[in-house]
Design a protein around this nucleic acid. Sequence first.
DNA 1: ACATTTCATAACCATTGAGTTATGTAACAG
DNA 2: CTGTTACATAACTCAATGGTTATGAAATGT
Lengths: 121, 121
Amino acid sequence: MPSTHLDSTFAALADPTRRAILARLALGEASVAELGEPFAMSQPAISKHLKVLELAGLISRGRDAQRRPCRIEAAPLAEANAWLERYRQLWEQRFDALDALLADMKAAEKTARKSRPRRKS
Amino acid sequence: MPSTHLDSTFAALADPTRRAILARLALGEASVAELGEPFAMSQPAISKHLKVLELAGLISRGRDAQRRPCRIEAAPLAEANAWLERYRQLWEQRFDALDALLADMKAAEKTARKSRPRRKS
DNA sequence: ACATTTCATAACCATTGAGTTATGTAACAG
DNA sequence: CTGTTACATAACTCAATGGTTATGAAATGT
C-alpha cells in the first residue's frame, strides 16, 4: 500500500552475494569482473546479481571502454533504514527494560542491606 | 561470512504482507485470525507467512486456549538495522555534499558581489 | 461424547530465483 | 578486417515462494 520499492530492496539485500557486492561498492566503483572475482561463481551469475541490484535501484552503471563500472546508490538503503527506524523503540525498550530491571535489583539489594539482609529471589 | 541470519531476515521483510503483519504486531500481540483479517487471503496463507516470520526469529508464539497469540521479536530487526548503519554515510554524505554545494554557491555569490569572482580551492 | 473454534499441515500448482553453459555483442587493439 | 576483452542475453535445470483447497488436531463449549 505505501507504494515503495521496499519489496525489491529487501529482496535484493536477502542474498549474501549481493550484500557482499554492495560492501565492495561502498569502497568505490568497480567493474563487473572485479566484483565477481571474490566469488566461486560464473560471470553470468554475477551479471544477474547486478541486474537485480540495478532493478532495485541499489546500483547504477556507467561506461568506460568495454567496462561497465558499477557504483552504489544509497537511496533505497535510506528507505529501508527509514522503515526499520519505526521499530527502533522495539529493540531499544528491551534494553531500557533491562536497565530498569538492573536498577530495581540494585535498589532492592541496597534496601535489603539497609534493613534486613533476608530474601533475594 | 558474518554468519548472521540476515538472509532470512531480509527475505522475510521483502514481502508486503509480512511487513504489514509486523506493523500490526508492533501495536501488540494478536491472534492468527486477527492478523489475517486485513488481507484477501486464505488462513493457511497467513499461517505460512507467520511461519516465515517465526523461522526468521521476527515473531514468537504463545498459547491462549485455542488461539496462538503472536508477538514481535525485534532482535533481527536490530541486526538488519546494524547492517544498514554501515552505509548510513553513503546517503548522508550526499546531503552533506549538497549542503556544502549550496553553501559554496551562497558564499560565491556574496563574494562575487563584494569583490571579484575568485576561485575557491 | 460431540460439535465448534482456531489454527496447522498436506498436497498441489504457478511463478520466481539462483545457478549453469553456450552464444551474442560492443568497444578497442593489431 | 580480425581478434580480444568485458560484459550481456538466451535457454535450461532445479529448488524455493506464495498462493490455493482439503484435511487434521488441540483446546473449549454443551
